[in-house]
Amino acid sequence: MATVKFKYKGEEKEVDISKIKKVWRVGKMISFTYDEGGGKTGRGAVSEKDAPKELLQMLEKQ
């Protein structure tokens, strides 16, 4: 499965596409929420050019 690499609050993070719950576009950025486990929801964003094609496909399906 594909992963998304991004920075959040200065920390490098990587999340599996299957854990992503919601995806939306903000200008040229793709924002998303994902399941961190333990009932927590994380947030992240990547630029449109750095987003994996699976993430862009999720955006188109909504």
Rank of each mutant, 00 (worst) to 15 (best):
A45I: 10
K53C: 15
T33Q: 07
T3E: 02
I20H: 00
K19V: 10
A2Q: 12
K61L: 12
K13D: 01
R43L: 03
Y8E: 08
M1G: 15
K40N: 15
D35N: 03
D16A: 10
V15E: 03
I30R: 00
E12Y: 05
I17Q: 05
K28H: 12
G27I: 03
M29R: 08
S18P: 05
D35A: 06
V15C: 07
K22C: 15
D16K: 07
G42D: 14
D35H: 05
E48N: 04
T33Y: 08
M29N: 10
E60Y: 03
G39H: 08
K5Y: 04
K19T: 07
I30C: 04
G38Q: 15
D35I: 15
K22N: 15
K22A: 12
E48I: 04
D50C: 13
T3K: 05
L56G: 04
V15W: 00
G38A: 08
Q62C: 12
M58T: 03
Q57M: 12
K21L: 14
W24A: 06
E60D: 15
G38R: 07
V23N: 01
T33M: 12
V23P: 04
K61H: 14
Q62M: 09
L55R: 00
Y8T: 02
K13P: 00
Q57G: 06
M29L: 07
V26A: 12
I30N: 01
T41C: 15
L56S: 07
M58D: 02
V4P: 00
L56Y: 09
V46D: 00
I17Y: 02
K19Y: 09
I30E: 00
T41P: 08
K7R: 09
K5H: 11
G37L: 13
E54V: 11
E60A: 09
G39E: 05
K9C: 05
G44C: 03
K7H: 14
G44A: 15
E36H: 11
I30L: 10
Q62R: 00
V26Q: 10
R25M: 08
V46K: 05
K53D: 14
S47G: 11
Q62F: 12
G44Y: 06
S47T: 13
I20S: 01
G10K: 03
V26L: 10
I20G: 00
Y34S: 01
P52T: 07
K22S: 08
K21Q: 08
D50V: 07
V4K: 00
G44S: 02
M1T: 15
G10V: 01
E11W: 05
I30W: 01
L55Q: 01
D16M: 09
V15Q: 01
A45L: 09
Q57R: 03
K53Q: 13
P52F: 04
D16F: 06
D35E: 07
G37Y: 11
K40H: 14
K9W: 12
K7F: 11
T33G: 15
K21D: 07
V15N: 00
V26C: 15
Y34I: 02
K7N: 10
K5I: 05
T3S: 09
K40Y: 15
S18Q: 13
T3C: 07
A45F: 14
T3F: 13
E12V: 06
K5R: 03
L59R: 01
W24V: 12
K53H: 14
K28F: 04
K19M: 13
K19D: 10
V46N: 04
